[in-house]
Amino acid sequence: MAHSGTARTLKSWLLVSPLTAILGLFLLVPVVVIVMVSFWGSSAYSYYPAFIFENYEFLFTSQVTLSVYLKTLTFTFITWALCLAIGFTVAYFLAFHIHSLTWQISLFLLCTIPFWTSNIIRMISWIPFLGRNGIANNTLQQWGWTDEPLDWLLFSDFAVILAFVHLFTLFMIVPIFNTMMRIDRSLIEAARDAGASSRQILQHVIVPLTKPGIMIGSIFVVTLVMGDFITVRFMSGGQSASVGRMISNEIGLLQYPAASASAVVLLLTVLLMVAAMLRMVDIRKEL
């Protein structure tokens, strides 16, 4: 190579300088600012520099914090389990039961297109389904399953999880499908020749080889649900709490130091969860 090591490093850094500048100013510095402000003091409508632990003290001694975290973790776990089950099944169908590449791509696109449309509109579109006079309630009454409309369909925890699964399953489908498509088909032939049943092939060949995709999908789903504040607010009709909502409420009250402390704790929680999941997969190899 004509380049010496230093020259190449310099060239690489020139190429990534816009990226570094943007992520520095809008990711790194804001996080540092949040950590800093989390130690500041606040009065009714303003906040001032200080170095106090009051915000954290309040956070860790409040009963609300624990219950909100438990609630958020419950949302996360249920959503993750459902997204994984649905996402794996869909990806498995596309990767191993559809044999024409054109069909695979077309059906895959069909699953991913909603990703490029508005989440808020997709949430709103559940209203005519789940409302008191919505399609679900009318159908259930027609079939005689209930006498009066069910109230818990819309604006409830059920609606929150339904919307999460609706919005985020494709974050599971894409990486799992991607890993499945790279599984060497001769491995499956070999397993079959050795007398494995379809079930055994799935369990002992496909699932282990798909683990990296499952991990990446899980990271997406878990972080999206943990940090969410809009879906919970909208789909629960403001009745359910989550960590993200707690922070957004504090922001609404202009309690920036309190919001910052909550945000720091949320960030640490999410990073710990991701670190645990990353131990099981090397993402750089999966691209």
């Binding site: 990226l19 972080t223 940090g227 993200g244 922070i247 922001i251 945000a263 999410v270």
Partner: peptide, 19 residues
């Protein structure tokens, strides 16, 4: 850093840049 940017809860960006 790029991966962090992807997985960081959005509200932190909103709050941090706002402050």
């Amino acid at each position: 850093l790029v991966i962090t940017s992807l997985i960081i809860p959005s509200i932190l960006i909103s709050l941090g840049v706002g402050i």
